[in-house]
Design a protein around this nucleic acid. Structure first.
Lengths: 150, 150
DNA sequence: TACAAATAATTAGTGTGACAAATATATGAA
DNA sequence: TTCATATATTTGTCACACTAATTATTTGTA
C-alpha cells in the first residue's frame, strides 16, 4: 500500500458524504419538506431531547455555535421552534419545538428514514457495522470525542 | 436492524468527513500552506492532468461549476494557475499550473500525504479496502457515476 | 444560410462550515 | 464585595455547496 493510495480515502469520503447530503436535499426539495437536511437534524434532536441549551444541542449535532445560531434563527423564523429564556441563567436559552415543529417531525420522520435507506442498497448489516467502526476510528484518530452509543 | 439505526450512518458519515477536512485544514494552516484543502485538490489534479477544461476538472474533483469557478479565481489570484483561452472553442479555457503552482504542488505533496495518513491509525489495509468498497457502493446507489480505478 | 438547441462558464442568492472577536452574564477567589 | 476568569450566545468574514438564471459560443438541422 503506497502513501498515494492512502490519501485517496479523504477524497472518497468527502465525495460520498456530499453525495448523501445532496441526494437527501433533492428528495427533501421534491417532497416540499420546507426544511434543509441540517435543519432536519436539529428538529429531530430537539424532538428527542427537551429544553436543551444551544451548547448542548451543538454537541449533539456536531455543529459549531455560530452555525447552530443561524440554523436556529431560520427554524424560529419558520415557526418550528422557540428560544425560551433560561430562568436560571440569563445567558442561555432553553430550546423547544412548537406544536408546528412537533407536527413537522411526526410528518417527516418516516419519509426521511426511507430516503436514508436508499444509500444502503447492496450492502449488508455486517457492512453497516464495519462502516460505523471505521468512521468512528477515523473520527477518534483525529481528536474526536466520545462516540455516543445506544 | 431498525430503520432508525440505518439512518445514523448519514450523521456519522457527515461528521467524520467534516472532521477529516477540519483536521487537514488546521494542519494546512499551521504549516502556512497558503491554500485550502479544496484548493489543494484542484492543484493536485491539475498537476496530474494538463490542459483540462473547467467542466472536465469539475467532474474529476466532484465539484459543481460555480464552486469551481470561485476556487479557480482564488488560485489564479494567488498565481498558482492560469486560464488559457481554448483556440478550438472560445467558450472554454484550458487550465494549467504556473511555475509557481508546480513548485507549490511539489513542496506540499509529501507533507499532505503525511497529514492524510493520520486518519488511518489503528486501521488495516483490509479496512481500507472495505471502506472504499462501501463508500463507492453508497455513491453508486445514489446515482454517482463511474468509479475511477487505478 | 439560419436558427433552435446544446454547451462552457459566470453571476446571484441562500445555506452551511470554520474561525476570531464581541457581548452579556455567571462564577470563584481575594 | 470585587474583580479576573469562564461560559453562552451572537456577529463578522471568508470559503464552499446547491440552484437558478445569464452570457457567449458552438452544433445540429431545416
Amino acid at each position: 500500500m503506497t502513501h498515494e493510495q492512502f490519501a485517496k480515502y479523504s477524497f472518497l469520503l468527502d465525495r460520498t458524504a456530499r453525495k448523501v447530503k445532496q441526494y437527501a436535499q433533492q428528495q427533501f426539495k421534491s417532497g416540499d419538506f420546507d426544511v434543509t437536511v441540517d435543519q432536519w437534524l436539529v428538529l429531530k434532536n430537539l424532538s428527542e431531547n427537551h429544553l436543551l441549551s444551544q451548547t448542548q444541542l451543538a454537541q449533539l449535532v456536531f455543529k459549531d455555535h455560530p452555525t447552530l445560531t443561524r440554523i436556529i434563527d431560520l427554524l424560529c423564523k419558520k415557526g418550528y421552534m422557540e428560544r425560551i429564556p433560561n430562568p436560571n441563567d440569563r445567558r442561555s436559552f432553553q430550546l423547544h419545538l412548537t406544536t408546528s415543529g412537533e407536527e413537522k417531525v411526526r410528518a417527516l420522520r418516516p419519509q426521511i428514514l426511507e430516503i436514508r435507506e436508499k444509500a444502503w442498497e447492496n450492502l449488508s448489516e455486517t457492512d453497516f457495522e464495519e462502516f460505523k467502526r471505521i468512521l468512528n476510528t477515523i473520527y477518534m484518530n483525529l481528536g474526536g470525542q466520545e462516540i455516543e452509543e445506544e
